[in-house]
Design a protein around this nucleic acid. Structure first.
Length: 586
DNA sequence: TACGGTAGCTCG
DNA sequence: GTACGAGCTACCGTAC
């Protein structure tokens, strides 16, 4: 039954009706004119649909009295579980419109992504999930109908209620499927108590969701003055270089064709070909010719342009000296988040200093050290690697001594860098051939193919469980064509390629770890004036009131440590923590 | 003119 | 036999 609520007094009766329920279904309709430009701070929530197993209540936020509604929502939604689809959207609006912050949630959008196990062909809209899991269909025609008009049509009200019906069926099916997953860890937290979900990955993601809502609503502080100055200066520098270049060489430095032609014909440079057969003028291929002024200027032009573009992109998203970006909670099939509008996870190192905490505040910047190697050691149970980490050895140096046969103490910086390349590359199944390229491009180290082969071999002989792991995966794949692999928490992927199968558990466990650390951090924060403002795969950036720095730093350390101990039983985790006025550690 | 794919660069 | 995961911009060919 659908109840359309337009009068404040009806809320009292509704509150009584919902009193004993552990959770409700929730959806909202927001008066957004252009869904490309959702403004979480200014757009208005029109309808709040609350569903029980039997009934659906559609509350018209434009009709009922504001304060009564706020009080009602706070009392009801913060005291029980919430089931919804893509709840980050609804939760952000509940926060900005009504100051309401539900903490115990189940998001069918997130659940659907977890259940997909990396199948990127699956879509996760409410209607796509409904078709896949139930026999119901959803008509989205009214989603973008005018939700701001004074009197809504009967169709609009019915549409808004229909989503709740679909949500019920999806939710029930997802809980069954999530709980069917084989897992060695079982969740016993809120997600279990309220929704009956034992799946630990789902439990983590659902606990993480409200944290992510807080992160997005916080934004990250930026020094607006420094930003505009940088843009101004960078513009001038770039324009001067650009005009000078065109005047001198009569070509456009941004036309790949003209540049390639100029470099090869006029300067006689030897450049490799791209896939399509044209000459490639990538920075890395031009680096060796940096002593030529034409090349040097060209590289500078590119550098300035990149800086300028990035700064201008950032400035598009600045409001009140903060950048409000968005995250996809499961942006990669490994469970990693991705960041967009703008992407705050690929800010060039040299620009991080423009992110500055406001007066009276500081950043705490924490990142896990060599986390993927530690996870690989834990995952493979390789004795040598575990021992090295337990003894707090520098693993890159150790690998360097293993592959070169030199003494651990005598490893040079260059050898350590080479080992770094090998350590990372070999986790992901790099071939000796690619290793040569990789060492060259990323560390500017020249090795021959036969050297690479030797290093490859020495590495696998010293870390035998690594070899075994790769061989097992390879053999299994040859026989079965696909393999299900999982992270330390139990996040799953069906892999068809060797490199995916070996990469996933490592990268995926890293994302389990970071999300868990953030959840634990928020749980212990209580009323301290601190909030997470960015997450970059193995890094947590917290903005904190100056006087709370010590306490918050301690809580953050303990959270990262605890998450580490929960997921890694044999290998210790380590992390760096810095307190700084800006994101660059200074 | 709009869209999709590719190359190239940034980060982890 | 294959290093992995993202987002953003500019360019370029194709379709309308």
């Amino acid at each position: 039954m659908v109840n359309y609520i337009t009068q404040s007094k009806e809320l009292t009766a509704l509150k009584e009706k919902l009193k004993d329920l552990p959770y409700v279904y929730l959806d909202t309709e927001v008066a957004v004119k252009d869904f490309e430009k959702v403004d979480y701070f200014n757009d208005k929530v029109r309808l709040i649909q609350i569903g029980t197993q039997e009934d659906i209540f559609v509350i018209d936020a434009f009709k009922v009295e504001r304060d009564t509604l706020k009080e009602f929502l706070k009392e009801v939604l913060e005291s029980k579980g919430i089931v919804g689809h893509n709840l980050k959207f609804d939760l952000k609006f509940l926060a900005t419109n009504f100051d309401v912050y539900p903490k115990v949630v189940f998001d069918t959008f997130i659940a659907s992504k977890i259940l997909a196990k990396g199948d990127n062909s699956q879509k996760h809209s409410l209607s796509a999930v409904a078709v896949r899991l139930t026999d119901e269909e959803v008509d989205k025609t009214y989603q973008t109908s005018p939700w701001w008009v004074e009197n809504l049509t009967k169709e609009q009200i019915e549409y808004s209620a229909k989503d709740i019906e679909v949500l019920r069926s999806i939710f029930r099916e997802q809980v069954v499927r999530l709980n069917e997953e084989q897992t060695h860890l079982k969740s016993s937290g809120e997600t279990y108590k309220v929704f009956g979900v034992v799946n630990p990955v789902a439990a983590l993601e659902m606990a993480f969701l409200p944290c992510l809502v807080s992160i997005e609503l916080s934004g990250i502080p930026i020094d607006e003055k420094q930003l505009s100055n940088l843009i101004k200066n960078s513009k001038t520098t770039f324009q001067n270089l650009y005009i000078e270049f065109k005047r001198k060489y009569y070509i456009d430095p941004f036309s790949p064709q003209q540049v390639a032609n100029f470099l090869t014909k006029k300067l006689g440079l030897k450049l490799p070909k791209t896939e399509k057969g044209s000459f490639s003028s990538q920075d890395v291929h031009l680096k060796p010719y940096e002593d030529k002024p034409e090349v040097k200027t060209l590289l500078s032009i590119r550098y300035e342009k990149k800086t300028l573009d990035k700064l201008e992109e950032l400035s598009k998203y600045v409001k009140n000296s903060r950048v409000y970006g968005e995250f996809k909670q499961i942006g990669a099939s490994t469970g990693r988040m991705s960041s967009y509008k703008p992407n705050l996870q690929n800010i060039p190192k040299n620009l991080k200093s423009i992110f500055r905490a406001p007066d009276g505040y500081l950043f705490i910047i924490a990142d896990y050290s060599q986390i993927e190697l530690r996870i690989a050691a834990e995952y493979t149970k390789d004795k040598s690697m575990i021992k090295a980490f337990q003894e707090k050895k520098d693993l890159h140096k150790l690998t360097a001594s293993v592959i070169t046969g030199k003494d651990y103490q005598e490893i040079t910086k260059e050898e350590r860098n080479l080992a770094k390349a090998i350590n990372f590359g070999l986790i992901y199944g790099i071939s000796p051939k690619s290793l040569v390229e990789y060492a060259k491009n990323n560390y500017d180290i020249d090795i021959t193919l036969s050297q690479a082969k030797t290093f490859h071999e020495n590495f696998f002989n010293f870390y035998p469980k690594f070899k075994e792991w790769h061989e097992n995966v390879k053999n299994y794949l040859e026989k079965h064509k696909f393999i299900q692999v999982e992270t330390l928490l139990g996040r799953k992927l069906i892999a068809y390629k060797f490199t995916d199968a070996v990469n996933y558990p490592i990268q995926g466990s890293g994302s389990d770890l970071l999300k868990m650390a953030v959840v634990l951090f928020y749980k212990s924060l209580l009323d301290l004036d601190a909030k997470v403002v960015n997450l970059v795969h193995d890094e947590i950036v917290v903005e904190v009131k100056q006087e709370d720095v010590d306490k918050v730093q301690e809580i953050l350390s303990q959270s990262m440590e605890k998450a580490g101990r929960y997921l890694l039983k044999e290998v210790p985790v380590e992390f760096e923590i810095n307190v700084s006025k800006s994101w660059s550690k200074e």
